[in-house]
Amino acid sequence: MAAASATAREASPIAHSAAAAPVSLRGIGRAFASQGGSRQVLRDIDLEIAAGEIVAILGPSGCGKSTLLRIAGGLDRPTQGEALIDGEPVKPYDARSAVGFQEPRLLPWRTLASNVALGLPKSTPRAAGREQVARLLDLVGLADFAGHRPREVSGGMAQRTSLARALARNPAVLLLDEPFGALDALTRLKMQDLLLDVHAAEPATILLVTHDVDEALQLADRVILLGHEAGADGAPPATQGAVVVQTVIVPGHRPRDRGSAELAELRGRLLDGLGIDRHGAARGIETGTTIPHYPY
């Protein structure tokens, strides 16, 4: 797997790379109006992301992961705090970032090439734009499908087109909202490797929302776990809104061995943080120990 992605990296270099920019989220809070008041979804989120870093945001469903990502991209505004890219406040639909949505969100009446071209910055000259689109389609392995409409290709291909469109923006910050969540397990693994290749070729800062612990550990330098603080003795939390409950720095260089024991231990910790029982301690097996060999 490692060898394969290394060759892919050599085969599809991107000529000019974006200057990755640092992202700062300072004291971010977001409340949504609901009947009879407001509901606090996020509060006190402080996060400094270095230029070129890959940060994965994990958390239970509905905890505000996507909201945080949308705030970073200027698709939503925080009710408290501020989001900065490269030290400057994020503007609505900020041009410095590109968003890869959960769904491909391609325009069905346009070809894949023309959908990717939608991502090009406005000032791109026509010829250079065409060249860039061709290069990106090649990078995501869709050079032969440039003229196809989205309905004529599979879900994985549409999602790759969507990734190419985001890259066409030449973004300083790439925001990915569960980009591979709707794909089948095998396609997802291939897309993860593709994303790492792309990051190696064009090192943008990547903020990735996911619900997949393994994906987070495979891709990220750092994993942020969002969740609700439990009150004392399991009492309901005193304040509303999800906060950063855990930060995990993932050791080792990418691409990582998917089967390593170190990652398995981190996975266990993150699953614990997500409130998932890993069914180890329940059987009296101390987690972290190796499985005893036969005869027991």
Binding site: E103, P104, L107, P108, E152, V153, G155, A158, Q159
Partner: peptide, 20 residues
């Protein structure tokens, strides 16, 4: 077959909501 390509229905991944 449609134009030499197996027509793959996008299913839930397709751009939703558009009346096609």
């Amino acid at each position: 077959t449609d134009g030499g390509l197996a027509v793959a229905t996008a299913g839930p991944l397709g751009p939703s909501g558009v009346d096609r």
